[in-house]
């Protein structure tokens, strides 16, 4: 019973990972890719590790709780650092973007 429940959680997590990576391939520029992939892969990894918490060796479940907290803190921070770096290094937005407040304020 518990194994079935954790397999269901892992399946949903894998599905979200797949959506994030499809976004990584399909979307047009760095910022959109970063958004889609960071959100979906973070939730997918947390669901997979939650499956370990439900049924697994008890040492592994404590470590995966620690890993969930760690990933929830670090993945958005890495995304923020990367987007700021690509702004500073001069990567342009997609040509169909509607507004860019940052560039207007820099002038």
């Amino acid at each position: 019973m518990r194994e079935t429940l954790s397999l269901i959680f892992m399946f949903i997590g894998g599905l979200f990972n797949l959506f994030g990576c499809i976004g990584l391939v399909r979307l047009p520029d760095v910022y959109n890719r970063l958004q889609a992939s960071t959100k979906c892969v973070t939730l997918g990894t947390c669901l997979t590790l939650f499956g370990i918490i439900i049924s697994g060796p008890i040492n592994a479940s404590l470590k995966s709780l620690l890993c969930i907290i760690f990933i929830l803190i670090t993945a958005p921070t890495a995304a923020h650092a990367l987007s700021r770096a690509s702004i500073k290094s001069g990567v342009k937005l997609w040509e169909k973007s509607v507004i860019n407040k940052l560039e207007e304020d820099k002038k």
């Binding site: 959506f19 994030g20 399909r26 520029d29 997609w94 169909k96 973007s97 407040k101």
Partner: peptide, 18 residues
């Protein structure tokens, strides 16, 4: 995000706001 990625026309309208 799943809706926007799987839609065949990519319904996005990106920009930077403050």
């Amino acid at each position: 995000v799943a809706y926007r990625v799987l839609h065949p026309n990519l319904p996005i309208r990106p920009g930077i706001v403050k």
